[in-house]
Amino acid sequence: MLDPDLIGRTFVGANATSVTQDQINQFAAVIGEENLTVAPPTFSISISLDQSQKLLQDSGLDWSRVVHGEQKFEIKRPIVAGDQLICSSTIESYRVAAGNEIVSVRSDLHAKDELVVSTWSTLVVRA
């Protein structure tokens, strides 16, 4: 179960993730995207899910039972190769329904002071 003291708290990653052209190319290849100058719209999930899991690994959530319920992106500008992105994750809401824990995590990716993308993931920890 989630430690309730963590609701509303923001965890900021210590290290930036460097985006490489190769990562963008690989992601684009999966969906048949031929324009490789910017990352596809959902590319940021490959950074934010992993980073938020690391930031919240001591939260009490059982990540092995997590399923993805809902996802939202607000993209301020597309991610490009060479971006150095710092992830900050906040548990925005939490409830328990029929024994399942339903957690909404907002993760913002910043390049220095510039907000590049905000993502909201609703995660369901199955009972």
Binding site: I31, G32, E33, N35, T37, V38, A39, P40, P41, T42, V67, H68, G69, E70, Q71, K72, F73, E74, I75, K76, R77, P78, W120, T122
Partner: peptide, 19 residues
Amino acid sequence: KFLSDLNGSAAVVEFSAKF
């Protein structure tokens, strides 16, 4: 990709869905 095909990936500013 369906959204990107409308006016390029750089034009997509929001995207949300439930699974």
